[in-house]
C-alpha cells in the first residue's frame, strides 16, 4: 500500500497521505515530510556511529486537523532547531485532541545527507483528514 502521493500545487508542495489507522497516518505523514526534505548523498557505514536523539512531544488541538498540523510542525521545528531527523516514534496517546509521543531519530549529518527542499511550514490551506473503509487519509500543503 502506498503511503503518500504528491498532489499538484503551483508554488508549494501538496501531499495526500494514507494510513491504516490514525497512528499509521501520522507516522506516514512524518516520513513523507522527511523524504521530501532530505536526500542521501553518501551511504552510511553499517557499523558507523550515528548519534541518536529522543524527544518527548505533547501537543493539543481542538480537532484532528489541528493535532495533525501541530505534530508535523513540531517535527519541522525539531529538525530546524535541533537537527533531528525522525526515524521512528512511539505513540503513547493519539486521539482527536491530543498527541503524546516519543520521537527517536538521528542528528542530521551533512556528510551523508543534504536538504533538497526546505519546508518553511505546514499550512492549514485545503487541509483535510478523513476516515474511509480502507483507513485514514490526509491532504496537506507545505509552504516551501
Amino acid at each position: 500500500m502506498k503511503t503518500y502521493e504528491i498532489i499538484n500545487h503551483t508554488a508549494d508542495v501538496g501531499l495526500r497521505i494514507y494510513g491504516r489507522n490514525l497512528e499509521g497516518l501520522f507516522l506516514n505523514a512524518a516520513s513523507a515530510m522527511f523524504e521530501i526534505m532530505l536526500e542521501q548523498v553518501k551511504k552510511r557505514p553499517i557499523f558507523g556511529r550515528t548519534e541518536h536523539m529522543r524527544f518527548l512531544l505533547n501537543k493539543q488541538g481542538n480537532n484532528i486537523e489541528e493535532v495533525f498540523v501541530a505534530w508535523l510542525s513540531e517535527l519541522l521545528y525539531l529538525f530546524s532547531a535541533e537537527g533531528l531527523v525522525m526515524e521512528k516514534a512511539n505513540m503513547h496517546k493519539l486521539d482527536l485532541n491530543c498527541i503524546q509521543a516519543e520521537v527517536i531519530g538521528r542528528a542530521f549529518d551533512s556528510d551523508f545527507e543534504r536538504i533538497k527542499t526546505e519546508i518553511k511550514a505546514v499550512t492549514y490551506h485545503e487541509l483535510e483528514i478523513k476516515e474511509d473503509k480502507r483507513g485514514w487519509q490526509a491532504q496537506v500543503i507545505f509552504d516551501i
Binding site: 503551483t10 508554488a11 499550512t123 492549514y124 490551506h125 485545503e126
Partner: peptide, 9 residues
Amino acid sequence: IHWGYGFPI
C-alpha cells in the same frame, strides 16, 4: 498572481 495558501501570491 498564483496559488498560495490563504492569500494568493
